[in-house]
């Protein structure tokens, strides 16, 4: 039987400690990478209701006629002015739609996207009922619940969501809210924003500027 000296034992223990710390550090780094927080800023004063975002989204995501991943609401202000408010899934931090899903077809990713696995959805509609923003619908083609994904298939490739890319006035700004250097973070830090229905506790991640009260329901 071989015996090891105290010095060797300390060496092995030290290297094990270093390896453990290094491994934890690498985990922390990957957590940081996964810790992005995708969010959107919408400047209502810049939207003039051209619906380019709606069309781009429908074309990009094969959204059937009659249902919408994003839509633009037209509201008449008390003074008679007209305002256009783009709306969509708010990719909430505390998503009410994830909780009632019986099969876990709806889930939240590490970087804050709330997504639907159409292969797991049984079409019970609990998430549709639970979404305070009317962002979900039954896809008439698949029967599964469907909604905006922030174009996760595009942002993975470093591209912007279709609605953001198509907006002619840059009313929509998309980015990583946890990155202090990102445009969306700088804007949200600088201007006074509002979210929709904060009373539901959903912690939505679409920040509106110049949102009138009449459109905030």
């Amino acid at each position: 039987m071989s015996s090891i000296s105290r010095r060797e034992f300390v060496k092995v223990a030290a290297s094990a400690l270093v390896a453990t710390v290094a491994l934890s550090a690498s985990k922390a780094t990957s957590r940081e990478v996964g810790g992005r927080r995708w969010a959107m800023f919408i400047d209502v004063s810049k939207c003039y209701g051209c619906m380019a975002c709606v069309v781009a989204c429908a074309a990009e995501n094969n959204v059937p006629v009659g249902v919408f991943r994003t839509w633009v609401e037209r509201h008449v202000l008390p003074g008679g002015g007209v305002v256009f408010v783009p709306k969509q899934c708010n990719h909430c931090d505390n998503p009410p739609c994830v909780k009632p899903c019986p099969t876990g077809a709806t889930y939240r990713t590490a970087d804050g996207l709330v997504l639907v696995d159409p292969g797991k959805c049984i079409g019970c509609g609990a998430c549709i009922v639970a979404c305070p923003y009317g962002a979900r619908y039954f896809n008439p083609l698949t029967g599964a619940a469907d909604k905006c994904t922030f174009c996760d298939h595009r942002i993975k490739l470093g591209r912007l969501p279709a609605c953001v890319e198509a907006c002619p006035t840059r009313a929509r700004v998309f980015g990583d809210l946890s990155d202090p250097g990102s445009e969306v973070r700088r804007i949200v830090d600088r201007v006074q924003t509002r979210v929709l229905k904060p009373e539901t506790g959903a912690e939505p991640q679409i920040y509106y500027y110049a949102l009138p009260e009449v459109a905030s329901k």
């Binding site: 380019a52 781009a56 074309a59 990009e60 995501n61 094969n62 298939h153 595009r154 490739l157 591209r159 912007l160 279709a162 953001v164 890319e165 198509a166």
Partner: peptide, 8 residues
């Protein structure tokens, strides 16, 4: 999903 051209 597709990654078709949407302008921009």
């Amino acid at each position: 999903h597709t990654t078709g051209s949407t302008g921009g």
